[in-house]
């Protein structure tokens, strides 16, 4: 897997290909502010890790990006357009795909039906080229496990299979950018490994991913760049390699 990582160069795109541009994002849970003036961006073809301890504001950032928090403020430009006033479903329709940390599979629906819920029409980049579009058939090839259980209800799948299904369900929306919340959390090591392989494979297909992660090692395997959050503030940003080398930051905000 490391070998794959080293040969995989980030797909080079001009600065105009800035996919997501977040400026001065603030968010609250009830009366408590949990995000402060957050700035971050993701370019086309990048895998960016949002790192930090539990409660640092990673999941909150994702929810704010999706518009799933009642109180938030600040600018979110996606594909060059301001989306911060849109409802969650409208953001999803613009091509922002969200994979929640707690899976949230529709347990009474079969695998195929779960995918159907996520289906959106094919997308094209502004330059006219086709985006990474998926059909159920392609997804079943990409996730052979799911292909073998197309009619199984979500509730009768193991945790790892459910994890894959949530990703596949989001991919059915053909997102320009995938928000992947805590992919390695709460699953067996063997599944964590599969998740890492899957992210690398998606990256190889040209997908852009923003993921949140506590596990530096996991993030190091899959990402190009990282932002480190602490108590709702961005404390560090840089390439994954720089972060791995920066012991001070690691000790202060990640403490492995």
């Amino acid at each position: 897997m490391n070998a794959v990582h080293s040969t995989q160069q980030p797909v080079a795109h001009a600065a105009s290909e800035l996919l997501l541009e977040v400026s001065a994002l603030n968010a609250w849970y009830g009366a408590a502010q949990v995000l402060y003036e957050l700035n971050l961006n993701v370019r086309r073809g990048e895998v960016v890790a949002l790192m930090g301890r539990n409660g640092a504001g990673k999941s909150t950032t994702f929810k704010a990006l999706m518009g799933m928090l009642a109180r938030r403020q600040g600018g979110i430009r996606f594909m060059g357009q301001e989306i911060s006033t849109l409802a969650p479903f409208e953001r999803a329709r613009r091509g922002l795909g969200f994979v929640p940390e707690d899976r949230r599979v529709f347990t009474h629906l079969t695998v195929t039906e779960n995918l159907e819920v996520g289906r959106q029409s094919d997308r094209h980049w502004p330059d006219g080229s086709e985006a990474l579009n998926w059909t159920p058939q392609q997804l079943f090839e990409f996730f052979p496990n799911l292909g073998a259980m197309q009619d199984r209800p979500g509730g009768q799948m193991s945790g790892g299979e459910q994890q894959m299904l949530t990703v596949a369900r989001t991919l059915m929306g053909n997102p320009f950018l995938i928000l992947l919340d805590e992919p390695s959390e709460g699953v067996a090591p063997v599944i964590v490994e599969q998740m890492a392989q899957m992210i690398l494979a998606l990256k190889a297909k040209g997908a852009s991913i923003l993921l949140s992660e506590q596990n530096l090692h996991f993030a190091g395997l899959v990402s190009d760049r990282a932002y480190v959050l602490e108590k709702g503030l961005v404390r560090y940003e840089g390439s994954m390699a720089e972060l791995a080398a920066n012991e001070a930051v690691r000790k202060a905000y990640l403490t492995m």
Binding site: M1, N2, V190, V192, E193, A196, H217, F218, L221, M256
Partner: peptide, 16 residues
């Protein structure tokens, strides 16, 4: 085989 896999994703932590 059934649980750890190759162990690549956590051997770093174990070393620590």
């Amino acid at each position: 085989q059934v649980y750890f896999g190759t162990g690549k994703t956590f051997e770093h932590e174990m070393a620590q």
